[in-house]
Design a protein around this nucleic acid. Sequence first.
DNA 1: CCTGAAACGGACTGATGAGTCCGCTTACTT
DNA 2: AAGTAAGCGGACTCATCAGTCCGTTTCAGG
Lengths: 173, 173
Amino acid sequence: MTELRADARRNLERVLDAATEAFAASGPDASIDDIARLAGVGHGTVFRRFPTKDDLMFAVIERHVDEMCTLAREALAAADPGQAFFDFVWRLAELNMSTPGLHRCVVHCGDKPGAAELEKLADRVVSRAQRAGAVRRDVKAEDVRLLVRSALTNTPPGQWRRYLAVVLDGLRA
Amino acid sequence: MTELRADARRNLERVLDAATEAFAASGPDASIDDIARLAGVGHGTVFRRFPTKDDLMFAVIERHVDEMCTLAREALAAADPGQAFFDFVWRLAELNMSTPGLHRCVVHCGDKPGAAELEKLADRVVSRAQRAGAVRRDVKAEDVRLLVRSALTNTPPGQWRRYLAVVLDGLRA
DNA sequence: CCTGAAACGGACTGATGAGTCCGCTTACTT
DNA sequence: AAGTAAGCGGACTCATCAGTCCGTTTCAGG
């Protein structure tokens, strides 16, 4: 029942590879038709495995999201909450901005279960740093998330580090 | 030749009013059909006056852009370059965020002649503040523009003041 | 092999939205 | 009042894209 036929498994891999490439290049605007063409399959084949485009997108970024959750858990376990927060943000940014298109997909899928988990973890990292006095108290954890995101999104390629530095300086207590 | 017939003039006004309302509500995503319906005219009438949607959008924001240019010129004339910069940014933000939809239209039309003029003026305000030592030197004038924009765009309604405060704090020398 | 179920893929639908066209209407002019 | 050019508006084209359907192909087990 859960076993896929050999050709189905092969096509599934091709689709995921193609989708990763297309979403990395064009963000959530990549079309299913493009992805199917890139994978060398009909687009009906894509829809059989992933009932909606969002399902496919989430399958592509799931690995990314998991990785980010791990970073968040490490930050929560670290000794110095302030340092952990700043390190966490930089690592998160490096991971996301290595493929800006996928980052935009992560933003697009913000309400999916896995992504919601990540948000909860990230908010705890922020709160901990605030309690330790490393981050100003007049912003909410959610605000920090949005500020960092806005510094990374719609930013000229290769310039985001400078932008993030400014925002993080603005966030220090 | 340049005189419009009475009905044409009346419809032109209606279209501009409707477009302002629609763009303010939905940003650049407002459709010409919606605008025409709101104005009570056929959409052919809209296209006769404004060959493309962008032309219409720019006509709507032109007044805004002019007002912003005035603010920039005032800032350039002010005595204290640093204070002038921060006042300028806050006034610009208040003006834009009173109608977030129109702000998104301004961003969308960033390359139109009038908007380009505004960018040049704004960049001079920034450079002047940097030379006066009020703004950190490791960012370019364009970076400041983009950072401020990113703090205002895609931001929960009513929260943008906090976000802007953080970014401006991060920009101080 | 040979057969049936799984998988395939592309034609099709339906929605949306920009921009064109042209037969009809209406406002000015004389 | 009548002629005419300006103006009108909606039907039409064209393109895009998500998602459906079904006749055909291909895999895998007996």
